[in-house]
């Protein structure tokens, strides 16, 4: 099987006035990949994610480099053209699942609006597709379709947000800390769901997290980011079993482990 590259970032530098936020980063995500970008706060991981969809705040600028999505360079693309990509080719889910839906509209109406903007489906087709997408994320579809966002629990909302992100079958799903605000059990379920959907839809997942534990199970590629620079990247098995960079090693050691109980955690960071 030939690996199709969905996203290729090369030599990307993002600046805030003269300060480098992200420096010369390189990464490539293939179809079917679960690419995990790991970093602590201030590492530039979320800025990188925002840059892909052209969601950078005004004061941040991509100073150099390219972001190739499906072969098309997204850097410096006009807002109107970018909008065509968002939702259809790239979609996002965020840590703040409450912000994914407006509280004034039913979930179903918001899914419908999304479909109306990007497709030529009839009203009936749209409803079918919306219900189907809710079913795919294992939600009681009819009930959620007719619910407002505040009537759902955190886990349900994040599921609905995933449904919304996946409804147009994007090639790349960017998940920016999607499980940070959730309980560990709910988080585990959401991750499993994302993995299943990725298999079914054949898309790639660009997963951003500060916690290496969320990477262990599903990712196949990992990049570790610190202060705007990628310090280490590669296949998960390599990075996890033979971390080369000191920072990567330190990150691993800082996590409390259930089996190995030591008197103190390593904190060489």
């Amino acid at each position: 099987m030939i690996q199709v590259t969905v996203l290729a970032i090369s030599d990307l530098t993002i600046q805030h006035r003269k300060t480098m936020i992200v420096q010369n980063i390189e990464m490539s995500v293939d179809e079917g990949d679960w690419f995990a970008l790991v970093g602590e706060s201030g590492s530039g991981k979320s800025v990188t994610a925002a840059a892909i969809g052209g969601l950078l705040p005004r004061e941040l600028k991509a100073a150099s480099g390219s972001i190739l999505l499906d072969g098309k360079n997204l850097v410096n693309l006009k807002e109107r053209e970018l909008r065509k990509y968002r939702g259809t080719v790239i979609s996002y889910i965020f840590q703040d699942y409450q912000g994914a839906f407006t509280p004034f509209m039913k979930i179903g109406a918001q899914l419908d609006e999304m479909l109306r903007t990007h497709t030529n489906h009839s009203k009936k087709e749209r409803k079918e597709r919306a219900l189907h997408s809710l079913k795919l994320v294992e939600l009681p579809e009819e009930r959620v379709y007719n619910s407002y966002s505040f009537q759902l629990s955190g886990g349900q909302l994040q599921r609905a947000a995933i449904a919304m992100a996946m409804i147009l079958e994007p090639k790349l799903l960017i998940a920016d800390e999607p499980t940070t605000a959730l309980d560990s059990m709910t988080a585990a379920n959401i991750l499993q769901l994302m993995a299943d959907l990725k298999e079914k839809a054949g898309c790639a997942v660009f997963f951003i997290t500060h916690d290496l534990r969320h990477v262990r199970k599903y990712a196949n590629k990992v990049a570790i980011m610190r202060n705007g620079v990628i310090v280490e990247s590669g296949m998960k098995s390599n990075v996890f079993h033979q971390p080369k960079h000191e920072y990567t090693k330190a990150l691993f050691e800082a996590i409390p482990s259930l089996r190995k109980t030591s008197a103190r955690l390593s904190s060489h960071l």
């Binding site: 602590e40 706060s41 500060h210 916690d211 290496l212 330190a250 990150l251 050691e253 800082a254 996590i255 409390p256 008197a263 103190r264 955690l265 390593s266 904190s267 960071l269």
Partner: peptide, 14 residues
Amino acid sequence: LDVSIQAKILNLLK
């Protein structure tokens, strides 16, 4: 807190 800071705080508490 970040993972590395978490470790430091937990150590301090101990």
